[in-house]
Design a protein around this nucleic acid. Structure first.
Lengths: 273, 273
DNA sequence: CCAAAAGTGTTACGATTACACCCATGG
DNA sequence: CCATGGGTGTAATCGTAACACTTTTGG
């Protein structure tokens, strides 16, 4: 039997809340989605992009034909093994770094790590045959990038909505699901959303973030009250001017801490009835 | 620079609810711990052992001078490095096993693994210098042994109350705390207590288990209602005869499942006010 | 003024905690 | 018949969900 070396790698599911063109759910509940859906894949209005390019609070409202969704960063394999499938960023652990350091370093090849607001260990995948060739033990990580960041990406790399993952390499799909579940759970009892939000934001922006990350609808009012009571968010005192549609100007908030913290050990958001 | 090989090991915190002689809360926190802490865990009354030796529901009431507590299995190092400190069972990962398998195999040297009712991954410790010599990346596990089990132990191995750990090797103390926190958290929203309870049991026994594992007092009445509503426990229909002190015979229950399961995603036990 | 967006207040509900009271048994 | 657990029922509490109503702004 040939000698097989064992290497240790990290794999990071980097999440960001983004807008995607409405997906065409072919075959099934097709028509409704189609109408505004298919046509506009690339066309995120220049204005929107410009507005988000800046550092702060660009109220990303859902335009028609767009959905705000949790996205994960993937790159497409140009070579075998698993050519053409999509993979999580990551790579081999070096001799003198710990896993956290390694995950951050590997990510630097794909995104500007200065944009990375949070990184945490999620799970270890150790099936001896999880990938062909040498054995690779994978430590899975969860990473977060804020709403307003628009990092440059290498040509093989793209954001994909987690609700509609492409053909994934090896067990990378499982990794994404694990990480997403972890994120959703932690939204309830920690301030982890700081990693997905921009420096300052309005409550409706924050609501969109929570909706996207949790996968269900959240009430703005209650979100505000809960997060304020727990001192997770703090009003800056400023207000944001409304869009051209009018409306009352929104109060601007920021996260009290920029590091993860358990804010209420016994808290649980629940999906709507 | 000398070449340093990297190996992957597992470390398992095996927990069992056990009775210990009451710690003497003497003058300060220093002396008391030393006295009964290190020395005494052997002197459990013969009767208690006999009663618990059998397979089912021996209502372990706290006698005077005894406390029911969560215990962790440790062995004492006879050799350097860290001679005389206490370690978690574990060891090196083999080429053709995954981490779960490895953890179970390593444990077989310390306890009868047939007694092991649950085993799950908790964390990875990867600091390049966490132990002297070759680099060891440690995957930490949580293991459970039921109340009634009284496994044979090797001479260097002993149960220690988690509230009073001895001098621990390397980062093993941190591992124990991590695992214990994980256990406490999962008691709220999963049926993980099946791993700590015997096949069948009365509510007051189960209460003791929850108290020991959570570290705070739990109301028997409410525990029964909550676990019944969630269908975590099922009445067997039998009753246990009361002790010589008299009292109404207790209903006997069993856990509905003998595998971990999320029973109520949004549940949280809270400590008493 | 009217529509749109944001914020306030109130109620409803679900789950858990706390506790008083009734039941069954041994001595 | 009484002390000792065990079990049942009910009230109190806490947090979040739901929603109607008021405020502020643009057209």
């Amino acid at each position: 039997m040939a000698h097989r070396s064992t290497i240790h790698e990290t794999l990071t599911a980097v999440f960001q809340v983004r807008r995607f063109p409405e997906t065409v759910r072919a075959g099934e509940s097709a028509r409704d989605r189609e109408k505004s859906g298919t046509g506009a894949p690339i066309s995120r209005s220049g204005r929107a992009i410009a507005a988000r390019g800046r550092g702060n609070d660009p109220l990303p409202r859902c335009g028609p034909g767009e959905r705000t969704e949790l996205a994960v960063l993937l790159w497409e394999r140009a070579l075998d093994p698993a050519k053409g499938t999509w993979s999580l960023p990551g790579g081999r652990l070096r001799e003198n770094e710990d896993l956290d350091t390694s995950a951050a370093r590997q990510l630097a090849e794909k995104v500007d790590v200065r944009e990375l607001t949070h990184l945490e260990q999620v799970w270890v995948f150790s099936d001896p045959d999880r990938v062909p060739g040498d054995r690779r033990i994978a430590s899975a990580y969860l990473g977060l990038v804020p709403l307003t960041a628009e990092p440059e990406l290498p040509p093989d790399t793209r954001w994909h909505p987690v609700s509609d993952l492409p053909d994934m390499s090896f067990d990378h799909g499982t990794v994404v699901r694990h990480a997403r579940n972890r994120l959703a759970a932690k939204l309830s009892y920690t301030n982890i959303a700081f990693g997905l939000a921009s420096d300052t934001f309005t409550m409706s922006t924050l609501r969109e973030i929570y909706c996207a990350a949790l996968g269900y609808d959240v009430d703005t009012t209650n979100l505000q009250r809960v997060l304020t009571r727990r001192k997770v968010i703090t009003p800056t005192g400023e207000t944001a001017s409304p869009g051209r549609a009018g409306g009352r100007p929104a109060a601007v908030y920021r996260f009290t801490d920029s590091e993860i913290r358990v804010t209420d050990e016994f808290a649980t958001f629940r999906p709507p009835a």
